[in-house]
Simulated scan of single mutants.
Amino acid sequence: MTRRRTLRPEEEELWQAVARTARPMHPKSKGFLRGMDAVAHPHPPVVDPKPREAEIPKSWLEPFRLGQKSKTASAHDIAPGLGEALKAAPLQMDAKLHGKMVRGKLLPEARIDLHGMTLAEAHPELIRFILNAQSAGMRLVLVITGKGKRGEDYGPIPSRMGALRHQVPQWLRMPPMGPAVLQVTEAHLKHGGSGAYYVYLRRR
Results as ranks from 00 to 15, higher is better:
178 G>C: 04
35 G>R: 15
118 T>F: 01
16 Q>R: 15
97 L>E: 11
180 A>S: 11
32 F>N: 12
93 M>C: 04
135 S>F: 10
12 E>A: 13
39 V>T: 10
123 H>I: 07
195 G>L: 02
32 F>K: 12
105 K>Y: 04
137 G>H: 02
142 L>S: 03
131 L>E: 06
163 A>T: 10
68 Q>S: 10
107 L>K: 14
30 K>C: 10
80 P>G: 05
108 P>V: 00
189 L>N: 11
43 H>V: 10
181 V>D: 02
9 P>M: 09
92 Q>S: 04
120 A>W: 08
95 A>M: 04
174 M>N: 11
12 E>H: 12
137 G>P: 01
4 R>P: 15
156 P>L: 07
42 P>V: 06
199 V>Q: 03
94 D>M: 00
81 G>F: 07
19 A>E: 07
141 V>E: 00
106 L>K: 05
178 G>Y: 04
73 A>W: 11
27 P>S: 09
10 E>C: 06
154 Y>R: 13
56 I>V: 11
34 R>T: 14
191 H>C: 03
125 E>M: 10
35 G>F: 14
78 I>E: 15
25 M>T: 11
141 V>L: 04
45 P>M: 12
21 T>M: 08
148 G>V: 02
115 H>M: 08
113 D>W: 03
198 Y>M: 02
188 H>N: 14
119 L>V: 08
117 M>D: 00
61 L>E: 12
181 V>Q: 00
114 L>N: 02
195 G>T: 01
203 R>Q: 14
112 I>V: 07
51 P>N: 08
106 L>G: 00
50 K>S: 13
111 R>F: 06
83 G>C: 02
8 R>D: 10
101 M>A: 02
88 A>F: 06
32 F>G: 08
120 A>R: 15
85 A>C: 13
70 S>D: 13
76 H>K: 14
10 E>G: 07
62 E>D: 09
70 S>N: 09
60 W>R: 10
169 P>E: 02
56 I>A: 06
133 A>Y: 04
36 M>Y: 13
55 E>F: 05
176 P>T: 01
42 P>N: 11
162 G>A: 02
59 S>T: 11
45 P>E: 13
173 R>K: 14
148 G>A: 01
157 I>T: 14
193 G>S: 07
170 Q>D: 09
109 E>M: 03
9 P>Y: 06
59 S>G: 00
162 G>C: 00
91 L>Y: 01
168 V>I: 03
152 E>K: 14
103 R>I: 01
129 F>H: 05
37 D>M: 13
145 T>E: 05
176 P>D: 05
140 L>P: 01
141 V>D: 01
97 L>V: 07
175 P>Y: 11
64 F>S: 15
36 M>I: 14
187 A>F: 03
